[in-house]
Design a protein around this nucleic acid. Structure first.
Lengths: 220, 220
DNA sequence: CTATCATTCAATTATTCGATTGAATGATGT
DNA sequence: ACATCATTCAATCGAATAATTGAATGATAG
């Protein structure tokens, strides 16, 4: 209690940053950006044990990044507000632009091919309304069911090969996934281009699209 | 090398966050937001030993947040780009709005009085051009000399009491300091208001003002 | 009121991080 | 070419953190 207010403040800011400093917690936040979820579901999605998952979630809560409520027997966690999403986005932005390692990893996913620039969300919205584009949601089916861009097709990236014949080669394809930390869209675009499709990524994933205030769709 | 690209990417993002997770490094970044500096100067400003300071700086560099160059015998560090500043701002934003602790600390600085809303930079620029406001830079003199808002008076917050008689009681005072992590402006406003002045904080400090593309001034 | 079950707590271990010290580096400027 | 000096490296210690296990909690549903 006798430390200066200046140091006390810095400790608080550092606490928020520390909450973001473990890959496991970034995974959790990525999941929560898709949709609110219960602890058990998060544990399953991320491959963590339930107890470990719970501890990470509490660190995120202490940092003010997520909040929780009870629903029946389950505790449902969700992102506190849009600021959490903004913070994740800016963090990713810094990492992507300033760390050579990140570029290298992404190039590895594309097998060394240069991927085209991603399309931004405004442009996609315009193209969607004129029907000149195929939108591909490459997340797992359950996340697609929770919420997706209206009119999108769902083909989990792991099973993309099976559905290639369903895709129109003459229409540009825009693939999206969970957001800036997710590699699914990168992988999908690389795979599609190798197979002769004209494919690009969307800049941002479903959370960012929703945060823009655009309509989303759920499978009832 | 055999880990998945997904985990590799998350590790990189976590690395950036971890760089922000120590109060000492946040202090360093706050200093570097004022101006580029050599290691020795940073050590002195932050109270760290030179060796310790150097190590923290290297962590920041690994995270891509700062870069360095040589100038004569000295190594000069600076923020990599404006994204670092953005990241710091958003981090502070999340902490300020979601952590009750932070509010409490800030209230402590204001002695429980409610501080008025800060003025935003656009508004200050307008008020400045019509001369209807006194702008007060409450940072130490050396930082003021490096760069300050044109027309600002410099009164380090620690010595504000000595200069009260120099201030016009009939003009609104706007105080600013290093930025969102700095408590000087909070302290100055609390002190001035207790002494009957009409004072407010500026939203953001000198780095944010400069980043807006506005003119700054240096003491030659 | 009680049994159930999702979640959290507590305790342990292995790992990582931060500060400190003193020595080493290496580009500069003479 | 050499001496200088700001910076970095290396090694150490103490503290903090992450994952794991099993037990405890506590609100709900019957």
């Amino acid at each position: 209690m006798s430390i200066s207010p200046k140091m006390a403040l810095l400790e608080e800011y550092a606490l928020v940053a520390r909450a973001l400093s473990a890959p496991a917690r970034l995974m959790l936040l990525e999941q929560l950006a898709q949709n609110e979820r219960r602890v058990e579901a998060l544990a399953e999605k991320t491959g963590l044990t339930v107890a470990n998952c719970s501890q990470h979630l509490q660190q995120l809560r202490r940092a003010g990044l997520v909040t929780s409520r009870r629903d029946g027997k389950a505790i449902i966690y969700r992102l506190t507000d849009a600021r959490t999403l903004t913070l994740l986005g800016v963090l990713g932005d810094v990492a992507e632009r300033n760390l050579a390692q990140v570029e290298e990893i992404l190039r590895g996913i594309s097998n060394g091919e240069d991927a085209p620039e991603p399309i931004n969300r405004n442009e996609l919205a315009a193209r969607l309304s004129e029907g000149s584009v195929t939108v591909l949601d490459v997340r797992p089916a359950d996340e697609f069911a929770d919420a997706h861009i209206p009119g999108a097709l769902n083909m989990a990236v792991t099973e993309l090969g099976k559905f290639l014949t369903d895709l129109d080669r003459n229409t540009e394809i825009v693939a999206y996934c969970r957001g800036p930390y997710c590699v699914y869209a990168h992988q999908a675009v690389a795979f599609l281009r190798k197979n002769g499709f004209n494919a690009r990524r969307l800049d941002g994933g479903l959370p960012e699209w929703r945060e823009d205030g655009r309509a989303i769709q759920a499978t009832s």
